[in-house]
C-alpha cells in the first residue's frame, strides 16, 4: 500500500486488488445482497484508492484492511440509503431483484434466504457489527474502530443484533 501511495506503483496496486477483492466483495455483499451492486461498491472503493492514495494515512496505525473495510462499509451504507429512498426494498426483495425468479428461490437454499432476510431486517448499525465480527472475523476492537465507536458500544450492538435475530427468526420453519 505504501508503494501505491508513494510511487503510484500500478503493479503494487494490482497485487493489492488481487489479494483483497474477494474478501471485500463478500463484505459488500453482506451489507447489500446484490452481486452487481457489491461488485460496483468494491470497484468504486479500489478506484477511489487508486485515484487518491493519500486518503490512507499509513501513520495512523490502522491496518490497511481495517481501514478499507470502513470505506467499503460506508459505500454500501450510502448505496443502501440511496436505494431505500427510491425503492424501499428489504433484503429479500433485493435477492429477488437479483435476477432470480420465484421458482429459482423456491429451489434455492431456503435456510440461506431466511437467514439473509433476518440479518437484513436488523437495524443498520447492528447489521454492520454482526457482519464485521461474525462474518468477517474481525476482533471487537477492530470492528469498533471501523464503526468509530467504543468496544462497549459495539458489544451492546452485538447483543441487540442477537436479540433482533431471535425475533426475526421466531416461528420460521427450519
Amino acid at each position: 500500500m505504501i508503494r501505491v501511495q508513494q510511487n503510484a506503483d500500478h503493479k503494487a496496486f494490482s497485487v493489492l486488488v488481487s489479494r483483497h477483492t474477494r474478501m471485500f466483495y463478500a463484505a459488500a455483499y453482506r451489507m447489500y445482497p446484490n452481486q452487481d451492486v457489491a461488485e460496483d461498491i468494491v470497484q468504486e472503493a479500489f478506484l477511489k484508492l487508486w485515484q487518491r492514495p493519500e486518503i490512507w494515512k499509513s501513520d495512523k496505525k490502522a491496518k490497511f484492511t481495517t481501514w478499507f473495510y470502513r470505506i467499503v462499509t460506508n459505500l454500501a451504507i450510502d448505496y443502501a440509503r440511496r436505494n431505500k429512498k427510491t425503492k424501499g426494498s428489504d433484503g429479500l426483495e433485493r435477492i429477488i431483484d437479483n435476477g432470480k425468479s420465484v421458482q429459482d428461490i423456491m429451489e434455492a437454499d431456503y435456510q440461506a434466504i431466511v437467514v439473509e432476510q433476518a440479518v437484513q431486517q436488523l437495524p443498520e448499525r447492528q447489521k454492520i457489527a454482526l457482519n464485521l465480527c461474525f462474518y468477517e472475523g474481525l476482533s471487537n476492537k477492530e470492528a469498533a474502530e471501523i464503526m468509530d465507536i467504543g468496544v462497549k458500544a459495539l458489544e451492546s450492538l452485538l447483543m441487540r443484533a442477537k436479540a433482533g435475530l431471535r425475533d426475526n427468526l421466531k416461528g420460521k420453519e427450519w
Partner: peptide, 23 residues
C-alpha cells in the same frame, strides 16, 4: 444458523475489471 448465510460468487472477473479500469 448464521453460517447458513451464503455469498454467491462474483459474476465477473472483478479483479481484472478493477485493474483494467485503473490503468
Amino acid at each position: 444458523i448464521l453460517n447458513k448465510r451464503v455469498v454467491p460468487k462474483m459474476r465477473s472477473n472483478l479483479e481484472y475489471k478493477i485493474i483494467k479500469e485503473s490503468l
